[in-house]
Measured scan of single mutants.
Amino acid sequence: SIEEEIKKAEEAKEKGKTFIHGDFVATTEELLDELLKRLRKKL
């Protein structure tokens, strides 16, 4: 679910890890923020 993806992305951000969502690879905090923004729009 979208909620689960958001939670996983937030955890990755806290730990400074890379998060992959489909073909979107978030390797930096900026990219994770962008991904979180996109996911929240889908809610």
Rank of each mutant, 00 (worst) to 15 (best):
residue 1 S to F: 11
residue 28 T to I: 12
residue 26 A to C: 11
residue 18 T to S: 10
residue 29 E to T: 14
residue 41 K to W: 08
residue 21 H to W: 15
residue 25 V to K: 06
residue 21 H to R: 05
residue 39 L to P: 00
residue 18 T to P: 12
residue 33 D to A: 11
residue 29 E to G: 12
residue 38 R to W: 15
residue 28 T to S: 09
residue 36 L to V: 05
residue 10 E to H: 06
residue 2 I to V: 08
residue 9 A to Y: 02
residue 4 E to C: 15
residue 8 K to D: 03
residue 36 L to R: 01
residue 21 H to G: 05
residue 8 K to F: 04
residue 7 K to M: 10
residue 38 R to K: 08
residue 16 G to I: 08
residue 2 I to T: 04
residue 34 E to C: 14
residue 22 G to E: 09
residue 30 E to Q: 09
residue 17 K to Q: 13
residue 35 L to E: 00
residue 39 L to I: 05
residue 38 R to A: 13
residue 21 H to C: 15
residue 33 D to R: 13
residue 8 K to T: 03
residue 13 K to F: 06
residue 15 K to R: 10
residue 20 I to C: 15
residue 2 I to A: 04
residue 35 L to C: 13
residue 13 K to R: 12
residue 24 F to D: 02
residue 34 E to D: 05
residue 30 E to F: 09
residue 22 G to T: 05
residue 5 E to S: 12
residue 5 E to N: 08
residue 10 E to M: 13
residue 39 L to G: 00
residue 34 E to K: 09
residue 17 K to I: 14
residue 5 E to Q: 14
residue 19 F to R: 04
residue 20 I to R: 06
residue 38 R to E: 06
residue 40 R to D: 00
residue 16 G to S: 07
residue 42 K to M: 15
residue 23 D to L: 12
residue 12 A to T: 02
residue 19 F to C: 14
residue 5 E to V: 15
residue 23 D to S: 12
residue 20 I to M: 07
residue 10 E to S: 05
residue 43 L to K: 05
residue 41 K to F: 06
residue 37 K to E: 11
residue 30 E to Y: 10
residue 7 K to N: 07
residue 24 F to A: 01
residue 33 D to P: 00
residue 24 F to Q: 03
residue 41 K to I: 10
residue 1 S to M: 10
residue 14 E to A: 14
residue 39 L to N: 00
residue 27 T to Q: 05
residue 7 K to A: 12
residue 38 R to P: 00
residue 25 V to M: 10
residue 26 A to K: 01
residue 24 F to N: 01
residue 6 I to F: 01
residue 20 I to V: 11
residue 37 K to F: 06
residue 14 E to G: 10
residue 43 L to V: 02
residue 13 K to W: 09
residue 38 R to N: 05
residue 1 S to I: 07
residue 15 K to A: 12
residue 40 R to K: 04
residue 42 K to H: 09
residue 42 K to S: 09
residue 24 F to E: 05
residue 19 F to Q: 03
residue 3 E to I: 12
residue 37 K to N: 10
residue 26 A to M: 05
residue 15 K to N: 12
residue 3 E to W: 14
residue 14 E to F: 12
residue 28 T to G: 07
residue 28 T to A: 06
residue 19 F to P: 02
residue 11 E to I: 07
residue 16 G to T: 04
residue 28 T to C: 15
residue 37 K to Y: 06
residue 14 E to Y: 12
residue 36 L to W: 05
residue 27 T to D: 15
residue 35 L to N: 00
residue 26 A to P: 03
residue 4 E to V: 06
residue 37 K to H: 08
residue 7 K to E: 06
residue 20 I to S: 06
residue 23 D to M: 11
residue 36 L to Q: 00
residue 25 V to W: 13
residue 18 T to M: 12
residue 39 L to H: 00
residue 33 D to F: 12
residue 18 T to L: 08
residue 14 E to N: 10
residue 7 K to H: 08
residue 26 A to N: 02
residue 4 E to P: 04
residue 24 F to P: 01
residue 41 K to H: 10
residue 36 L to Y: 02
residue 37 K to L: 14
residue 5 E to F: 14
residue 39 L to E: 00
residue 24 F to Y: 07
residue 42 K to W: 15
residue 43 L to H: 04
residue 28 T to L: 12
residue 39 L to T: 00
residue 7 K to F: 07
residue 15 K to T: 12
residue 12 A to S: 04
residue 36 L to F: 04
residue 35 L to H: 01
residue 39 L to Y: 03
residue 29 E to N: 11
residue 31 L to E: 15
residue 16 G to K: 12
residue 17 K to M: 14
residue 26 A to L: 08
residue 26 A to D: 02
residue 14 E to S: 13
residue 11 E to P: 02
residue 33 D to L: 11
residue 27 T to V: 09
residue 12 A to D: 04
residue 27 T to G: 09
residue 17 K to L: 15
residue 8 K to R: 13
residue 35 L to A: 01
residue 14 E to I: 13
residue 12 A to I: 04
residue 11 E to G: 03
residue 43 L to T: 01
residue 25 V to T: 06
residue 26 A to S: 03
residue 40 R to M: 05
residue 23 D to E: 10
residue 28 T to M: 12
residue 13 K to A: 05
residue 32 L to G: 01
residue 8 K to L: 11
residue 14 E to R: 14
residue 16 G to Y: 09
residue 13 K to N: 02
residue 15 K to M: 12
residue 4 E to Y: 08
residue 36 L to N: 00
residue 9 A to V: 14
residue 43 L to R: 09
residue 43 L to C: 12
residue 34 E to I: 12
residue 28 T to Q: 01
residue 3 E to D: 07
residue 13 K to E: 02
residue 24 F to S: 02
residue 20 I to Y: 07
residue 43 L to W: 08
residue 43 L to P: 01
residue 24 F to C: 13
residue 28 T to V: 10
residue 12 A to E: 03
residue 25 V to H: 12
residue 13 K to H: 04
residue 4 E to K: 07
residue 40 R to G: 00
residue 9 A to R: 04
residue 12 A to L: 03
residue 7 K to I: 07
residue 19 F to M: 06
residue 13 K to M: 07
residue 32 L to C: 02
residue 5 E to G: 06
residue 22 G to C: 15
residue 22 G to L: 10
residue 15 K to C: 15
residue 9 A to M: 06
residue 1 S to D: 11
residue 43 L to M: 05
residue 7 K to L: 09
residue 29 E to P: 15
residue 25 V to Y: 11
residue 5 E to M: 15
residue 10 E to V: 10
residue 34 E to F: 13
residue 32 L to Q: 00
residue 33 D to E: 12
residue 25 V to S: 06
residue 30 E to T: 09
residue 35 L to M: 03
residue 17 K to H: 13
residue 3 E to V: 11
residue 34 E to P: 01
residue 26 A to Q: 03
residue 39 L to K: 00
residue 4 E to L: 10
residue 23 D to I: 14
residue 4 E to D: 12
residue 21 H to Y: 15
residue 11 E to A: 10
residue 17 K to F: 15
residue 16 G to M: 03
residue 14 E to V: 11
residue 32 L to E: 00
residue 32 L to Y: 11
residue 6 I to S: 04
residue 21 H to M: 08
residue 7 K to Y: 06
residue 35 L to T: 01
residue 37 K to I: 09
residue 42 K to G: 02
residue 30 E to G: 06
residue 36 L to P: 00
residue 43 L to I: 04
residue 20 I to D: 04
residue 43 L to Q: 05
residue 13 K to D: 03
residue 41 K to A: 14
residue 25 V to D: 04
residue 15 K to G: 08
residue 6 I to K: 02
residue 42 K to P: 01
residue 40 R to H: 02
residue 16 G to W: 12
residue 20 I to Q: 11
residue 42 K to I: 14
residue 9 A to C: 15
residue 25 V to P: 03
residue 35 L to V: 03
residue 22 G to V: 09
residue 36 L to E: 00
residue 6 I to L: 08
residue 42 K to C: 15
